[in-house]
Design a binder for these strands. Structure first.
Lengths: 166, 166
DNA sequence: CTTGACTCTGTAGTATGGTCCGGGGTCGAT
DNA sequence: ATCGACCCCGGACCATACTACAGAGTCAAG
């Protein structure tokens, strides 16, 4: 250790070291993404070192499409006396599935882009919009027309609907 | 083939089949994410089938943290007469890097969560916030205190700054 | 003890990405 | 012809995630 003369972590230092604006740090605190820091007698915030990793995590997670609320949940996933193991485990497993899904889609997108750069060398005229292939990987949906799992079917007990035009 | 009686794709059908609101489809059109559809004599939009894949791609990409503008770029990555191969290739490669980076971070997050579910069985009291480990993978930054690549150093030719307190 | 960098709170404004009318025209079954 | 489902457009409104003041107090070097 021997933290040099780092001194207490004021909000300004936290902001500079994490690369996030002061206002934003305060904002995250208000939103409950940061645990309320201690205060000096005069009201200045005193953060612990770990808030910096937390802020960086938040940044990264945002780039990955998580909302602040989802990030809050991710950050609250921990095993502690107040939370049952099974509870945490279930929530974590749901997140893992989410994430695995994102990874799969990203990998397909990446593959599609790589294919694009490769076909680049040879004759022009590949797919019209190659990246869309990223989501195809077989159109086994079948449900391409007729009934799309909603209204207009089996209207039971309704006054007298005239029939949807579509 | 033999498109059944699907009829021309009105905005309502597009919306239902892609699971996106009508207003949102119009919004994406305004934002230039969809090519302007043909119109009937009376002004009704007539979409082609492929707009549905496009809309689903947009949805998915949004969940992955891409902004509408980034998505527009992704959709415009194609090899055609108007765009030089090298141009496309360079842009695509940049995207590939972005994506690879996202994948790496997601994989670390996933790993951290898996570790969490595992340590769940055994003794309580693991890391305080396990998911943060997802970003650590060694703190080789060194730059943990002192000078953070900005102001206050080497003030050359300035009137007489009194020195930043921090 | 002055001064300037820094902090506080609270409120307002911005950008992005939709979402919701209202007023009006269109289409097709009855 | 009429009625209800659909469509059009323009503009207002909303949630999320910041970002920017304003006004006032704090801290420490000079």
């Amino acid at each position: 250790m021997s933290g040099s003369k780092t001194g207490p972590l004021t909000i300004g230092k936290v902001a500079r070291r994490s690369g996030i604006g002061i206002e934003t740090v305060r904002f995250y605190e208000r939103q409950g993404l940061l645990t309320k820091p201690d205060r000096t007698a005069s009201g200045y915030r005193q953060f612990n070192e770990d808030v910096i990793a937390r802020l960086q995590f938040i940044q990264r997670a945002k780039e990955l499409g998580f909302t602040l609320n989802q990030i809050k949940e991710l950050l609250s996933l921990r095993v502690d006396p107040d939370t049952s193991c099974n509870n945490v485990k279930a929530r974590a497993e749901a997140k893992i599935e989410d994430i695995a899904d994102k990874i799969r889609t990203l990998q397909r997108m990446k593959k599609a882009l790589i294919r694009l750069t490769q076909q680049c060398g040879k004759r022009g005229g590949g797919s019209e919009c190659p990246i869309l292939d990223a989501l195809d990987r077989r159109r086994h949906n079948s449900r391409t027309e007729g009934e799309h799992r909603d209204d207009n079917c089996h209207n039971s007990g309704m006054p007298k609907m005239r029939k949807k035009r579509n």
